[in-house]
Design a protein around this nucleic acid. Sequence first.
DNA 1: CCCCAACCGTA
DNA 2: GTACGGTTGGGGG
Length: 992
Amino acid sequence: MKKGDHLFLVDGSGFIFRAFHALPPLTRKSDGLPVGAVSGFCNMLWKLITNARDTSVGVTPTHLAVIFDYSSQTFRKELFPEYKANRSAPPEELVPQFGLIRQATVAFNLPCIETEGFEADDIIATYARQATEAGGDVTIISSDKDLMQLVTPCVHMYDSMKDKQIGIPEVIEKWGVPPEKMIDLQALTGDSIDNIPGVPGIGPKTAAQLLDEYGDLDTLLARAGEIKQAKRRENIIANADKARLSRTLVSLRTDVPLDMPLDGLVLEPQDGPKLIAFLKAMEFTTLTRRVAEVTGADASAVDPVEVTVEWGADAHGPDVGEGAAALPEPAKAGAVSAISAPAVSPDALTPASLAAARAATFKGAKIDTEAYETVRDSAALDRWIALARETGVVAFDTETTSLDPMQAELVGFSLAVADNTVDAAGTAVRACYVPLSHKSGRGDLLGGGLVEDQIPEREALARLKPLLEDTSVLKVAQNLKYDYLLMKRLGIEIAGFDDTMLLSYVLEAGTGSHGMDALSERWLGHTPIAYKEVAGSGKGAVTFDMVEIARATAYAAEDADVTLRLWHVLKPRLIAEGLATVYERLERPLVPVLARMEERGISVDRQILSRLSGELAQKAAAFEAEIYELAGETFNVGSPKQLGDILFGKMSLPGGSKTKTGQWSTSAQVLEDLAAAGHDLPRKIVDWRQLTKLKSTYTDALPGFIHPETKRVHTSYSLAATTTGRLSSSEPNLQNIPVRTAEGRKIRTAFIASPGHKLVSADYSQIELRVLAHVAEIPQLCRAFDEGIDIHAMTASEMFGVPVEGMPAEVRRRAKAINFGIIYGISAFGLANQLGIERSEAGEYIKRYFERFPGIRDYMDKTKAEAREKGYVETIFGRRAYYPEIRSSNPQVRAFNERAAINAPIQGSAADIIRRAMIRMEGALSHAGLGEKAKMLLQVHDELIFEVEDEAVEATLGVVTQTMENATRPSLEMKVPLKVDARAAHNWDEAH
DNA sequence: CCCCAACCGTA
DNA sequence: GTACGGTTGGGGG
């Protein structure tokens, strides 16, 4: 190395963590292997090698090395055993990427440097010193503050993520001291992440000020008595030794013995095929193409290299490049090694076999509900929190006074961690319950107060908050949205979580319940204590705060225990089934989004509903009188049984049909037919039913959902209720507010914006038909959507040869019914019912439709075959819907399942699309400066409702429309455009 | 008190 | 013909 040479030193270990946390969407290979950090690393290296001059570094390297940590056993650990002791295990998705990044380095023809007993930082310091002494310049590719002490006029750092060079001025700007004082500064402040003690109470600002005043640490310590602030003075004097120890720990060594001399770091030309083979194995298509272009290699002639994937605790190790195929023992495996014991033959180590082994281990493992700990004081709670940090995964569950998270008050919470101290036969999970506000059982003058020996809620929450908000500790919960919302109301935003309910839902939507009790039966062979066994049911029910603490502990801690076991079983299956992306992109991120929507609620005008209710009552009463007159007697009009007897018994009207229980059917369809045949009574029943339905379900019920404090209505969305991926809404259901009839729409006028705001409604136009056009690749449909043509008129025109211009409404209506029928997995029976025509005629229509659109029949046949073969169908984003009964020998059952299987990819893909839009929406609004002005409130399958400040309405309409219309991108480009209609008004009726 | 059937509101 | 949730009546325990 000589003057003019420029050495780049890449902090490989640092980059991995940085990339992992900075790159938001988790990137995975098609087999589920997480490769986000590897991708970031490769892109960064490629840019540095080919294009560093155009970055803010501004020079091209002549030498380059990538430096890694060898292991956690370093000289610092010998000096200070607690060094880095409270580091939690790396995130699960990160573990296999350590080895891959080393392999990437080799593929780039770059030296991969590591030395036993030293950290990457020391190696970097040593090379930087040597290079400077030889007259060269150095750029350290890292933004780690621990390396800033190395910055000199000849040594710069470079933050590749922010494309920002860090020199002396930048260090001073950031820390208030020049690089040569960074060591002293760090000695004073310490570092909680690396467990460097420092001086308590001294942060960067104070440290910089002190160093500015006294010059350096030694002077400061010598003259500490002069410090004016008493507390600070005592602190520094008392902790002088700690400061000196800290200084040694943060000082980087520049004398590390190096196997590779500086001249060995000369940047070699790229070996195109070698690099491409690796990039292909990682499925980095864009970078593969670029590398092929630049190196002149023929990418298509290169086979992907076999990569080594290590999931285990040794993934930090240096061994690279050899070994067998993927070995996805899930991360954190070490933590549960005691219970994931069953031997699996080495050649059977596939994701699927490992998932199966996990399932076998946990199935039937004994769960002892008497073995749980009741946490009575903060010291005990702190021990559990430390345990959670140590293992990196903790199950969390709250116990409250209500199923409604907006009303619920916290009573206690439970935690569970994997126990790696017991043998394979023992209990493998440890759990505890932390009671906070249990009351004594007696409600008389003496009792009813708080039970003794409970941690005060504020104190417990203060201790819990850092754990729950720390993304490096995974919180596992069942139906986390509930706990998320509850904790958010208490000032805690849970971050870094998994939800066992959602894991189950992604793995097997369509096969039964995803509730905890059902999952426990299914996967653990264990029946958890029933809630009603603890808190009673019906009239004898009490709120959980009245439950005796010992009993509460058994119940609550078991829930956390079971949840953690389920996670151990289900999470590996996600990888094995290739469903990690669905879970991580469509499911998990929606939890906080929905929680915030639920928390916001929507304003409902009580007066409007009350007035409507009165009107409906009057009108219904008038109908009742007429009904009794026509019937010749009074009866309960709301009783289909009594009504059937009147209509078909007493009055012996013709055309009655029976329900499957043998009752007379009084459905709207039957009554409409009778009305059309000239009978007066049925018409009046239909009208009466509409009015009473509106009254009982909407105008009377909705006010009861207005929250006493927020004065708004907070629905609850279920993420795991449908087979197709749609959400569902309940308590109240705001996804079935009337819209079709004028009378019904009046109810929508009661949903209003706050003063100074508008409601914005944005809905996808014909999204399911567009999805159909895309998945079945129907040219006419695609063209019609491209050109914005009326899709039902186009269908009618194709089928019946009628020109679109001047088409009779009835012809279009029939085509529209057929289009909907197609989406629903059409049958002649159903279409005939819908259109009121003969089944044979409906059959003709379908036949003609398939002649004009043969691609639709192909799609339907293909979907049915897929469902029969695999038991499930998939949406365009890979979500599965299972139909276990599709092979039923009962033709009706089978046909029903076939229609559902045809519908699911269409309905489900539309659901995926709006989910993506919702997940991005808050970010998009914030980006446009609307984060505080426009709030998403409701989702109704293809519609999103927002509440927006008046002045921000125009801007919001644009952002919302764009976000929704672009929701599939960049993952997927549809063959038809998505169209969104959006408008604003004071109430929901006018906005829709 | 619990559960089911019938009916009907939405996409 | 698909997917939901809520209300009511009514039967059984």
